[in-house]
C-alpha cells in the first residue's frame, strides 16, 4: 500500500499529483501487479482532499490500463506503465552527466542548460510531428 502527498502550491492539479505518484511507484517497483491501492475513503481521510479528485485520478489510471477496480474488493494494479527496460534510465543518466560536465566547462550555468534542454526538446517535438505529417 502506498500513501499520497498533495501539495497545494505545486501548480500541478491534485488529481494529476495522485496519478503521477502512482505511476512513479509502479516505475520504482514500490507497487507491483496485483497490489491494492488505498480506497477513496482512506486517501480522503489521510490527506483531506475532495473524494472526486481521487476518483478522477483512479479513473485516469484505469483508462490507461494501469489499475482496475474490482467490485466490492477495491482497486488493484493491473500492469506496469509502458516504458524502457530497467537500466535505461541509469545509462542515459550517465551520458547526460558527461554532457553536463562538458557544458559546465564551456561556461554554461544551470539556467542556460535547462533552457537549452527545453529548446532542444521543443525542436525535437516539432521535427517528430512534421515527419508524422509527411508519413
Amino acid at each position: 500500500m502506498i500513501s499520497f502527498r498533495v501539495d497545494g502550491r505545486s501548480g500541478v492539479p491534485p488529481y494529476l499529483q495522485i496519478v503521477q505518484q502512482v505511476r512513479q511507484a509502479l516505475r520504482m517497483g514500490v507497487l507491483g501487479v496485483g497490489d491494492q491501492l488505498p480506497t477513496v475513503r482512506e486517501v480522503v481521510a489521510a490527506v483531506a482532499i475532495n473524494p472526486n479528485t481521487v476518483l478522477k485520478a483512479y479513473r485516469d489510471l484505469e483508462r490507461e490500463g494501469l489499475i482496475e477496480a474490482r467490485a466490492g474488493q477495491g482497486t488493484f494494479v493491473r500492469a506496469r506503465p509502458a516504458g524502457p527496460p530497467p537500466g535505461t534510465h541509469s545509462r542515459l543518466g550517465r551520458s547526460l552527466a558527461r554532457w553536463v560536465r562538458e557544458a559546465r566547462e564551456a561556461g554554461l550555468d544551470e539556467e542556460s542548460m535547462e533552457s537549452l534542454l527545453r529548446i532542444t526538446l521543443r525542436a525535437a517535438d516539432a521535427t517528430d510531428s512534421q515527419s508524422k505529417e509527411t508519413a
Binding site: 477513496v40 475513503r41 480522503v44 481521510a45 490527506v47 483531506a48
Partner: peptide, 14 residues
C-alpha cells in the same frame, strides 16, 4: 482545520 476537513471529506466519500 486539517482534521475537520478530513472528517468532512470522509463523510462525503462515505
Amino acid at each position: 482545520r486539517r482534521n475537520f476537513l478530513a472528517t468532512l471529506t470522509s463523510a462525503a466519500a462515505e
